[in-house]
Design a protein around this nucleic acid. Structure first.
Lengths: 152, 152
DNA sequence: CTAAATCCGAGTAAATCAGTAGGATTTATC
DNA sequence: GATAAATCCTACTGATTTACTCGGATTTAG
């Protein structure tokens, strides 16, 4: 598990915010996700300072996205919350290598890094919301199946 | 940096072993890589117990690969040393999810996991050795370029 | 016998993770 | 203006992991 809960919770919180058009309170998001509100608060603070969300203080306050969901890539969010996604240090900073022999692993790690980066760059919060809403719809369909319609 | 030095050092040690046909001592590998011998020893113990290398004890002892380099994928080595490569917990164990709403991030993390896995599965120790030897050759060529040949 | 090597278990300083705790500030509503 | 509901901010903490170090037991070539 190399994406910490900070990144996961943050991304999922953005999806929840993308569902709404009015401010959503930490407490509400935390309940939907089944996680600690105080912890989520710290994560949302990072996302706010990075400009992805804006807050309304006071009663009936909460958070809203400050950009359109399709303008927020999962890459930037994860980089904001996790710092870096490089599999090994030398992918970020090639001076961090001190081995004597030529290292055969460099290309491998660069390829891994580039691929992960490209997947996350190609996936926005809007895409995640779409997936979540599709799952919601499937869930509703299954419930209706289980409950046969006596009216027909 | 989500691949720890345990995985990196272990993989690089295997490449060193793949260069040799006789036992190579920890001390020698550690010097070539510029890392701690006592730490490397623990890593090699894991690789030995997992069956990738065999040891010869006593004077003039050391380690050798116990399989052909092209029969050892980087995936199995990294899994042995790192435990798991799943980006998030629910990719390994779907019961570890407790959120209430549908989660839009599941497919994303599964895609990342599958892609990383496939890259590592498609790269063997032989491939890493080839890259290392290519770099060695380039290094030699550069040195000869810098030192013009007065005999011609 | 000795030197060189692996084998094995214990310990450890530092960093990170996943929170908890508590108080200050802001704001809508009564 | 008081109150309740919310964000804001900083500090602390227990558990785990990381990247080692250390010491000694065992094995083996010469």
């Amino acid at each position: 598990m190399w994406i910490s809960t900070r990144g996961q919770y943050g991304l999922r919180a953005l999806v929840e915010l993308a569902r709404e058009t009015k401010p959503l309170a930490i407490k509400e998001i935390a309940e939907r996700q089944g996680i600690s509100g105080a912890y989520l608060e710290q994560i949302l603070a990072l996302l706010r300072r990075a400009g992805y969300i804006k807050s309304t203080r006071g009663a009936f306050g909460g958070y809203m996205l400050s950009k359109a969901p399709d303008q927020i890539t999962t890459l930037e969010v994860i980089l904001t919350l996790e710092g870096s996604l490089a599999p090994v240090a030398c992918v970020e900073d090639s001076s961090s290598c001190n081995h004597v022999n030529a290292c055969g692993t460099e290309n491998l790690w660069r390829r891994v890094d580039a691929t992960v980066t490209s997947i996350l760059l190609g996936c926005t919060v809007a895409d995640l919301l779409e997936e979540a809403e599709f799952k919601d719809a499937v869930q509703v369909m299954k419930q209706q199946e289980a409950k046969p319609n006596y009216q027909s």
